[in-house]
Amino acid sequence: MLFNKNFKKDRFITSDNIQINYVSGGRGEPLLLLHGYPQTHVMWASVANELSNDYFVICPDLRGYGDSSKPKGLENHENYSKKVMANDMIELMEELGYEEFYLAGHDRGARVTHRICLDYPHMIKKVSVLDIAPTFHMFLNSDMNFSTGYYHWFFLIQEYPLPETLIGNNAEYYLKEKLKRWSAPGATFNEDAVKQYVRCFDKDMIHSTCEDYRASATVDMNDDAFSRDKKISMPLLVLWGEKGFINKNYNVIDVWKDYAKDVSGKALECGHFLAEEAPFDVIDEFRKFFR
């Protein structure tokens, strides 16, 4: 069992008929945790189990991921825009009765988190993003290092069905290669969590996650350009892996200061998957920041 007895599974149907799978549990103020690619909500299990002693923790699968709905992408990819994915999470939190909450996101979930902060600032008390630089900044400052280290950003946005077909020929290899390549040397993952990632990484999720990336390169860039004069207004904690791509290629705090008003953060001794490679450090940083 990945989540402890404090947690229960549930499902929520959004206003556009998307089923959001999630687990929740604990006590105290609400803390919403959003996962990244190519994972599901179970990436947060170690962190969530500990923090459930201090917060009511909600861990959903984003649309297109895990056991949430995986609708076919629209021609303009809009149904996988970060604005739409952000709205899913806001509807979930409103359904749970929360007008304000703490928020943290990793990887793709951190990009949804960024959009939530821009579109619903009145609902977010404090926020943390893990191991990303802003999408808009990364695309506009693309170079050889970016296109080599983050080759999947350019592979997954290729026209359907090219990436879906190639990944689908050996989906388990592709997923496990991502976990290995993006983590620090010697990093290990919970076997039960990896089994869940593999189970969920089916034909539908492969397509929907490609749509997530296609949206980032198209409709999300337009939305980000429109919002460029807005900054994250609430306190922002940025954490990233010392052994990862983000640390090697960006002055992380300086970049985020151009997108947020109140930024703090640090590198942790790990690769890309902070919550699984360095859960106790993440727990410690979250407790200090959110309280």
Rank of each mutant, 00 (worst) to 15 (best):
N79P: 09
F286V: 10
Y151Q: 04
P121M: 09
D107S: 01
A48G: 09
I253V: 09
Y213G: 01
D54S: 15
W44E: 02
Y98C: 06
C200G: 13
F201M: 02
E94K: 15
V238T: 09
E276G: 13
H122K: 15
E94G: 08
P71L: 04
W182L: 07
E91T: 06
M43S: 14
Q158T: 11
L33M: 13
L92T: 04
G168Q: 10
Y197Q: 03
R115S: 04
V255A: 05
L34M: 07
K72S: 15
G28E: 03
A260E: 09
M234G: 13
C200Q: 15
V127F: 10
T218Q: 13
L92G: 01
S227A: 14
C270R: 01
D220S: 10
R108K: 14
D16I: 03
E164H: 08
E242H: 14
Y37V: 06
E164M: 12
P60T: 00
D67Y: 13
V47G: 00
G66H: 04
V263L: 01
Q39N: 12
P134H: 00
E78P: 12
T209I: 05
D88Y: 07
K195V: 02
H272C: 09
P30M: 06
N79V: 03
H152Y: 12
D67I: 07
Y173I: 13
G241C: 04
N87R: 08
R27M: 15
V282L: 03
D204C: 11
S147P: 09
I132L: 07
I124T: 09
G97Y: 03
V47A: 09
E29F: 12
P161H: 05
W256T: 01
P38F: 11
V252N: 00
E276H: 06
H35F: 05
V238L: 09
I232C: 10
I58D: 03
W240Y: 14
Y37N: 05
V263G: 03
D224T: 08
K288F: 08
K82Q: 09
K70C: 01
G25P: 03
N53C: 13
H106G: 01
R11I: 14
Y173Q: 13
M85Q: 10
L31H: 08
A86R: 00
E99P: 10
L32R: 07
K231V: 12
L175W: 05
V57C: 01
R214F: 01
F12Y: 13
E91H: 09
K257P: 08
F12E: 04
E99Q: 12
A278C: 12
A260V: 13
G109I: 07
Y37K: 02
F136C: 09
N21Q: 06
D284T: 15
A133K: 02
V263D: 04
